[in-house]
Amino acid sequence: MSVTRPFKATDLFKFNHINLDLWTETYGINFYLGYLSRWPDLCSVEESPNGRMMGYILGKAEGQNTEWHGHITALTVAPEYRRLSLARKMIDYLERVSDNTYRGFFVDLYVRCTNNVAIGMYEGLGYSVYRRVREYYGSLGLGRNAKDEEDAFDMRKPLSRDPMRRSVRPNGREISVSAHDVS
């Protein structure tokens, strides 16, 4: 339960309790305004009844031809609001807009190969690993599992425009590409 509302530029003044968490990056102004000036309908916030931001999602639409898809760029929920199905709610929304408004073939997202909790959650939501992207992330500087930490899984879920599920494959974990080869 929460209020679903658009992500606004002025939310940047209010998201500290979410972004101070280790796993959430705080980008420059240009990053957020870049998204909002192009895909405002793919950016939304979940807010608690008393008006605190609980989490947010930022997305975009990109790709050519059958690769045209919605992409989840950032998805985060503040620690105290986890395990309330907020991520599922935000992803549902982004999938709906990607499907209805943008007519994409699929939605995809990147996740650190070490982030098992997140990977499990995405699988539960119908996503599967499409490929492994080498050295996609910067190191967290924690000095362990360096390789897995910097590699990303590109996970995908087909939308209604891809009824034959051509945008996914069963053996994605074994297919590995370099970070230069992806957009």
Partner: peptide
């Protein structure tokens, strides 16, 4: 240096809903 540039981009992309917010920001 940057924010006004996105106001311009929002105009170019016709994202009118964002303009008041960008200006306020």
């Amino acid at each position: 240096q940057e924010t006004a540039e996105y106001t311009v981009r929002a105009f170019a992309g016709e994202k009118y809903s964002q303009l008041p917010e960008f200006i306020l920001f």
